[in-house]
Nucleic acid binder design. Structure first.
Length: 968
RNA sequence: GCUGAAGUGGUGGAAUUGGUAGACACGUUGGACUUAAAAUCCAAUGUCCAUUAGGACGUACGGGUUCAAGUCCCGUCUUCAGUACCA
């Protein structure tokens, strides 16, 4: 009987589906364990071999936990709103829901054939109205909440209204917009409904505000900071500009401190926590108020170095700062205006790329030093960012490199306020070695003391206080797209109103075109049935809008991260129509025990999800305030791209035909030698050698064999322009390509599809091989050639159980050697799984099978438990053999074999005998031999005498059970 | 610049507490079987020297600690990822 993997795998996949083997129950006597993958966006290209890597790892863990007796929740779903489906809709007119459904079908087929133990009964799709109903519901909860700094949690907006009605807003300690005008209780009661709504909007956890956003004209939408890479859009690489727009924002900044503190309570990778810490960007310092000479205006700054306040020799405002126009003197106006215009023209990208150029302008105004009352010139400069702190800094050139450079450039005096520091060449920035001088009451103090004292003195004169600043900005939540969650929002007199949760979901309307409207409104502006009837509580035609009972609906949709910020909770009770998930289900499953996904989500999905979880926790909706206890990042599988070297002659002949040269004819850096130039001339005729250029061009990796040789016919037929291609072949008559490791991507023609691997080698081979490639978290290149190794292993394993006559497993008692092999394997595999070191356990299985084959082991006592060990990794073959051994139940819940150390006890050890630390020979000695005896035996040995060649050893180190080292 | 991760044969990688560096695979070479090929099996395979016995060198580089260092300490270099004037 041969190992017919295709048949076996199909059989068991069917069995698992029919018997709902992996369906998790919300009640169980067993302890719970929740294993989650980051759910995929179902793209049109389908899965490539890189995608399942993390899924295989989590599946192994989930299956292992089932063997350990846990009730395991291991769900899967789709993050199915997104840009590619919409772009496709724009191009083809095909509704994104249709393409999305098709893509999901492909994904499901591909996932099923790899044999994952997902509980598909809990599948979620973010674009399903039954799912986004609850995304909209959460949005409403956020709208109806404010953040109370006194209780340090989100509270219902009604508690805030009560405070306003009884005492005004003077004593409210809330996270809110800047510059909210103070009002009394009487004033509040006198406000119109619109005025009240305007005020409340400044406190709500999601709010409408005019914000400067990253507008991408090519995509017709706003992008979040983490959707922009190097100044261009992450998807598509289109340019991004700054633009002011009214947008929904999420007051994530309210949770900055808790998001930071929470990191200490969760077991996530250090690098990931570090990126979140940097993103939150906490800095402790002081806010300082500078009065302006001859003006009522004051300039607020934030500084982390209040101890250097006597070193201030100028102030710098961001060019966009609101006071600039007011402060600029008539004499300086022309210069300042010109500077503002120049910086506005520079894109964000230019400003970032060009850090070294110092530029700025003097406003003509002077601020007043809070203590010395000396005048301080006020400058503007684009090294100060409008978006951070107050958009203004007190410049201390002696203690800050940027201020130093700026002062030098514009010949502004530099005051040295550090004792014993040399600032003739550069600023002195070492906080630890700081001794303040030339600073009145701060003289002689170190950084810590001086900081405290400076804040104390500032508070005394009412011109400053200690302050903590966070870099984390509120997140823009509106997108000008079609394929996203609609907001449950309509507008009355320009003020946003929430639709009652009872009427959710508000479904996406049909539109004819998925592009922005001609007036520049988002795609939903094309919808003709997109108005809210407040009497009937339903969406009605726009024609009926009367602004009395029928009002326009919001035209923006929610961003990609909306649906993914809470899906892990929905899996706990995904079909619930009454609640987002039942309390019982959430109390049982609580949180994700193991979350596996890519590190690219560090400051996007993983931060927003933690924010929403904390908010929902504050509202009593979820039972824990961190959603994932442990998180592991899987590395990426990279593609090995193939390049054909195209010979290109600058004068332009031969262009259309294309002449290619084998890679082995070129030097390491692609250089040409005389012989090769001769060959090229033979092919192209007389050309000037200096005009010959070699251009590597991507070739599809499927045309290339494992020896890097190109299938010329396949390449010629690939594209019309290559039909007539000519090839200068290499030394062995073959045509060789150059190879390079790159990200796996369709555009690089290096994608390897798992479907082919599964049909050629089977899902078990694919699973094992993906794990065998290397440590889970590492980036590593894919090389299909190596898969024969694990495939051979499975064939060998099969032969251990089955031969030409069928099953050959016997009831014979296990030999000592076989027991040792088994228990060694149990120990190692268990340790490996718990350390997520899946690559080494594959090796361990190989060693076990090699050993048992040598031992000619047929004992059921050995071979049956071995299947349980293997089943998380290669579940199909394990189920099949388990079944053939006479088990009627699935292997998936069989108990994990118990390790018994007694089988590993050795009676002797093959000691390495070293001389001066260098191993020379080994010597078999009994384990119970004493140290002295070992030393005596080793010294008496003839090989030792040979090594010593008459010398007397100075010292002999004996570590029983480990090593003997002779020094001398 | 800062932060994080890493650097071991031709390749992927192993060595969990300092104790036989290169497990396990791929590839390569040789052999068996075969008319041949595939499949399978066996053997060799870090580099260099040596007919053998054996020896020298060897975990990015330079130092150090130790009987013993891929592993610990100090310094340097390189690669990858994230971040980017954050006051």
């Amino acid at each position: 009987m041969i190992y017919d993997f295709n048949k076996i795998e199909e059989k068991w996949q069917k069995y698992w589906a029919t018997n709902q083997t992996f369906k998790a129950e919300n009640q169980s006597e067993k302890p719970k364990y929740y294993v989650l993958d980051m759910f995929p966006y179902p793209s049109g290209a389908g899965l490539h071999v890189g995608h399942p890597l993390g899924y295989i790892a989590s599946d192994i863990y989930a299956r292992y936990k089932r063997h350990q007796g846990f009730n395991v929740l291991h769900p899967q779903g789709y993050d199915s709103f997104g840009l590619p489906a919409e772009q496709y809709a724009i191009q083809t007119g095909q509704h994104p829901a249709i393409t999305t459904a098709e893509n999901i079908k492909t994904y499901r087929r591909q996932l099923d054939q790899i044999g994952f133990s997902f509980d598909w009964s809990r599948e979620v799709r973010t674009s399903d109205p039954q799912y986004y109903k609850w995304t909209q519901w959460i949005f409403i909860q956020l709208f109806n909440s404010w953040y109370n700094n006194d209780t340090n949690k989100a509270e219902d907006i009604s508690t805030l209204e009560n405070i306003f009605a009884t005492e005004g807003n003077a004593n409210v300690n809330a996270v809110c917009d800047d510059n909210i005008a103070p009002f009394t209780a009487e004033a509040w009661q006198g406000f119109s409904s619109e005025d009240k709504q305007k005020v409340l909007l400044q406190y709500r956890l999601t709010y409408l505000a005019e914000t400067e956003v990253n507008w991408c004209p090519a995509l017709g939408t706003v992008l979040a900071n983490d959707e922009i890479v190097n100044g261009v859009s992450e998807r598509g690489g289109h340019p991004v500009i700054r633009k002011k727009m009214t947008q929904w924002s999420m007051r994530i900044s309210a949770y900055a401190e808790r998001l930071l503190q929470g990191l200490d309570t969760i077991d996530w990778t250090d690098s990931l926590k570090e990126s979140q810490r940097n993103w939150i960007g906490k800095s402790v310092g002081a806010s300082v108020t500078f009065n302006v000479k001859d003006s009522d205006a004051v300039i607020d700054v934030f500084t982390t170095r209040p101890d250097t306040i006597f070193g201030v020799s100028f102030m710098t405002l961001a060019p966009e700062h609101e006071l600039v126009a007011q402060l600029t003197t008539p004499e300086q106006k022309a210069e300042v205006d010109a500077y503002i215009l120049a910086t506005a023209k520079r894109s964000e990208r230019d400003r970032m790329a060009d850090v070294k150029t110092i530029s700025g302008a003097f406003t003509g105004a002077y601020a007043e030093h809070p203590f010395t009352k000396e005048p301080i010139p006020v400058w503007i400069g684009d090294y100060v960012l409008a978006g951070y702190g107050t958009g203004a800094v007190m410049s201390v050139p002696c203690g800050d490199e940027r201020d130093y450079a700026f002062a030098n450039h514009f010949n502004i005096p530099i005051i040295n306020i550090f004792d014993g520091a040399d600032i003739s060449e550069a600023a002195f920035t070492d906080k630890e070695k700081t001794v303040i001088g030339n600073s009145d009451f701060l003289n002689g103090m170190n950084y810590k003391k001086a900081t405290k004292r400076a804040i104390f003195e500032l508070e005394k004169i009412g011109q400053g206080e200690g302050k903590t600043n966070y870099r984390l900005r509120d997140a823009v939540f509106s997108r000008q797209r079609y394929w996203g969650e609609p907001f449950p929002v309509y507008y009355v007199k320009g003020m946003p109103q929430m639709i009652d949760a009872a009427h959710l979901p508000i479904k996406l309307p049909e539109v004819e075109k998925y592009l922005p409207t001609e007036t520049g409104e988002p795609p939903l502006g094309n919808a003709t049935v997109w108005a809210w009837d407040t009497n009937k509580n339903e969406v009605v035609s726009n024609d009926l809008i009367d602004n009395e009972t029928i009002h326009p609906l919001e035209l923006n949709t929610m961003p990609g991260w909306a649906g993914s910020s809470w899906y892990f909770n929905r899996y706990m009770d995904s079909t619930n129509t009454e609640e987002f998930a039942s309390k019982e289900a959430m109390d049982y499953w609580k949180d994700v025990d193991l979350y596996i996904g890519g590190s690219e989500h560090a400051t996007g999905h993983l931060l927003y999800s933690r924010f929403w979880q904390k908010f929902l926790f504050d509202k009593g909706v979820v039972p824990v305030d961190e959603f994932a206890k442990k998180l592991i990042n899987q590395g990426m599988i990279l593609g090995t791209s193939a390049f054909v070297n195209r010979v290109f002659v600058e004068t332009g002949i031969q262009k259309q035909r294309g002449v290619f040269i084998s890679n082995d004819l070129l030097g390491n850096k692609g250089e040409l030698n005389d012989d090769v130039i001769g060959l090229i001339k033979k092919e192209l005729g007389e050309v000037d050698e200096n005009d010959i250029k070699i251009m590597p061009i991507h070739a599809d990796v499927s045309f290339v064999n494992s020896s890097n040789q190109l299938d010329l016919e396949a390449f010629k037929n690939w594209r019309v322009e290559y039909n007539e291609a000519r090839f200068i072949k290499g030394k062995d008559g073959c045509f060789e390509v150059a190879r390079e490791v790159e990200k796996m991507s369709k555009s690089k023609y290096n994608v390897v599809n798992p479907d082919n691997i599964v049909s050629d080698y089977g899902a078990d081979s694919l699973r094992l091989y993906e794990m065998f490639l290397g440590p889970l978290e590492q980036y590593k290149p894919w090389n299909t050639a190596g898969i024969t190794g694990v495939h051979n292993f499975l064939k060998k394993l099969w032969k251990l159980y089955v031969d030409d006559n069928g099953l050959k497993v016997s009831d014979q008692a296990a030999t000592k050697d076989a027991l040792k092999t088994l228990h060694k394997t149990i120990k190692k595999v268990q340790e490996d799984i718990e350390n997520f070191s899946f690559n080494t356990s594959v090796s361990t299985f190989m060693i076990a099978v090699n050993e048992l084959t040598t031992q000619k082991c047929t004992s059921k006592d050995i071979l049956e438990p071995l299947l349980v060990l293997l089943s998380p990794y290669a579940p199909h073959i394990a189920e099949e053999l388990w079944n053939q051994l006479g088990n009627s139940e699935s292997i998936s819940t069989a108990a994990f074999p118990e390790f018994d150390a007694s089988h590993l006890v050795e009676s002797s050890k093959n000691y390495p005998i070293s001389f001066n630390g260098k191993m020379r020979f080994t010597l078999e000695l009994p384990m119970d031999m004493s140290k002295d005896e070992i030393e005596k035996t080793v010294l008496a040995h003839e090989k030792t005498q040979e090594q010593l060649a008459g010398r007397t050893p100075k010292k002999v180190i004996v570590v029983p059970g480990k090593i003997v080292n002779i020094v001398g």
